[in-house]
Design a protein around this nucleic acid. Structure first.
Lengths: 256, 256
DNA sequence: GGGAAAATACTACCATACCAGATCTTGGGC
DNA sequence: GCCCAAGATCTGGTATGGTAGTATTTTCCC
C-alpha cells in the first residue's frame, strides 16, 4: 500500500478535512487499489493523527460512494462497477446537458473568455509529451466547472462532482488506452463554440457526445483488470463475492 | 423545540443510523425550524445516547445539505433558500426526465402494474379529508421511486432523493397553500400513461410539467415565513445575516 | 446610562479508552 | 491429513475527557 505522508496538524484547516482530501485524492487517482482494505487505525498511524478524524473522513467518503464501511469487519475501497460507472455517467449527462443549455442563456462574456483561455491552455499541454495528463484532467474539470458556475448552477456542479468521482477512477486507469487528448479538446471546443453562439440545441448535442466518449475504453479495462472490478449484476460496490483484497500488496507480505 | 423521544439503544440497528433517521425526519418534516441551533450535547441528552453518534449523524446531515456545521460555533438547520430549492428542482428535473425516458424502454409490465396500484391508492386517499397528506407524500415518493428503479436507475434515484430532501421541506410548509392533491395525482396519471404507451417524448413532457408545478407556492411562502428563509443572493445555507435562532423556545429562557 | 474589558459558558474538534462482533490463528482430537 | 473448537487479534461502534475557539454575560470604569 502506498505510504501516506503525515498531515500538518498545526494547520488552520481542520484535520478531518485534510484527511478527507488526502484519502479522496488517493482513491480517485487510483493510488489506492479498488477492493483494498483500509483501517482507521492504520491510516491514523500513517498520517500521524488519531482515529477520530480518520473515522469522520471515512464516513464522508462512504457517503460519496468511494468507500464501503462494513461494521466490525473493515472498510474497503469500493471496486469499480461497470453498472455504477455507467449510472454515474447517465446522471452526469442528464445534469450537464441541462446545465449547458442554461449556460447558453446565462453565461457572461467574461465567462466565455475564461473558457477560451482554458481551452488555449489545453491545446498548449496537448502539444507536450504525455506526462502532463494530470494537468489535463485539472483543466478539464475547470472547463466543466466554469460552464456550470457561469450558468449559475452551483448545486448542479456539486452533483456533477460526485458523479465525476466515480468516473475519474476509470479515466486514471485508462490513461494509456483512452481517447486521445486532442480529440477531447476538440469536443470541448465544439461545446464552447455552441455556447458562444447561444445555440442550446447544438451545445446539448456537443456535450452529450463528449460525455459519451469519455468511457469508451470501459469494457476493455474490465477485461484487463478484473480484480479491480465488481462483476456483480446488481449495483452496489462492496466486495460481496470472494475475499476482499487483503491489506498490503497483493502477493508476498513485506516484513518490516 | 420539539422533544425527541429516546432511541432504543439495544436495537440491532447501529445507533448512528437511528439518530440520523430521527433527525432527518425532524428536519425534512419541519419539526425542526430552519435556522434553529442544535447541539451535539443537547440532542445526545434527549435521545439518551452519547455525543459520538450524534456527531456522526450531524456530519451525514451536513453532507446532505440539511445542516450546517460552523466549527466551534454551533450546528444549525439550514434555512430554506429560494435559489437552493430552485437549483435542486433544476437537477431533479434533469435527472427524472432522463429517467422517465429510460423507463419507457426498460420498465417491465410488472413495474407498470405496481405504478397502477400506487396510483389507485393515491386516488383513494384523495377522497378522504385532509389529514392524510403525510400518507400522500409517501405514496408520491414511492411512485417516483418505482419509476426510477423500474428503469434500472438506482444511482439516479439516490441523487433524486437528495434533491427531494431540499424540496420536501417546502412541501410540508406549503401543505395548505399548495397545488391540490387531485391535480398532482392527475399529473402522475399522465406520466404513467405515457410510460405505459412507451412514448418517451410524452413522458418527458408530463414529468417536466409535474415537477414544475410542485413549487408554485414558493414565492408566497417566502413572504409568509421570512424567518425560515435565507434571503442572501448567493447560494449556501447558513445563517450569515442577523443572529441565528437561539436554542430553546423563542422567548423566555427557562431556567433549569 | 454607555462602553470596553474580563470572566463565564457555551461550541465543535480531537484524542483516548473500552466494547462487542467478526475474523484469523492455533491447537488438539481423530 | 482433516475438522472443529478455543483463543488471540483484528475490526468499527460508542462513550467520555480535554482543548481551543467563539459567543455571551458580567463587571468595572467613566
Amino acid at each position: 500500500m502506498p505510504e501516506l505522508s503525515r498531515i500538518d496538524v498545526d494547520s488552520a484547516e481542520p484535520i478531518t478535512r485534510s484527511v478527507f482530501r488526502t484519502l479522496r485524492t488517493a482513491i480517485v487517482s487510483m493510488h489506492f487499489q479498488p477492493g483494498q482494505a483500509l483501517s482507521e487505525q492504520e491510516i491514523a498511524d500513517q498520517l500521524g493523527v488519531s482515529r477520530q478524524p480518520v473515522r469522520e473522513a471515512f464516513i464522508k467518503l462512504s457517503e460519496a460512494g468511494l468507500l464501503i464501511i462494513r461494521p466490525q469487519r473493515g472498510t474497503f475501497v469500493v471496486k469499480i462497477s461497470v453498472k455504477q460507472v455507467l449510472d454515474a455517467r447517465f446522471v452526469r449527462e442528464a445534469v450537464e446537458v441541462a446545465v449547458v443549455r442554461q449556460a447558453c442563456d446565462r453565461i457572461t462574456p467574461a465567462g466565455i473568455m475564461d473558457l477560451r483561455a482554458n481551452l488555449k491552455a489545453q491545446w498548449a499541454i496537448a502539444s507536450d509529451s504525455d506526462p502532463s495528463s494530470d494537468r489535463f484532467l485539472e483543466l478539464d474539470e475547470a472547463f466543466h466547472r466554469t460552464i456550470a458556475l457561469g450558468a449559475d448552477c452551483e448545486y448542479a456542479w456539486r452533483i456533477v462532482e460526485e458523479t465525476k468521482a466515480q468516473m475519474d477512477r476509470v479515466r486514471y486507469l485508462s490513461m494509456p488506452y483512452a481517447t486521445p487528448v486532442k480529440r477531447l479538446i476538440a469536443q470541448h471546443e465544439a461545446v464552447l463554440e455552441a455556447i458562444a453562439a447561444r445555440d442550446p440545441a447544438k451545445a446539448e448535442a456537443a456535450m452529450s457526445l463528449h460525455l459519451r466518449e469519455i468511457l469508451t475504453s470501459l469494457p476493455e479495462l474490465e477485461g484487463k483488470f478484473p480484480d479491480l472490478f465488481n462483476h456483480d449484476v446488481a449495483g452496489g460496490g462492496g466486495p460481496k463475492t470472494g475475499k476482499p483484497a487483503p491489506r498490503g500488496r497483493s502477493a508476498g507480505r513485506r516484513t518490516g
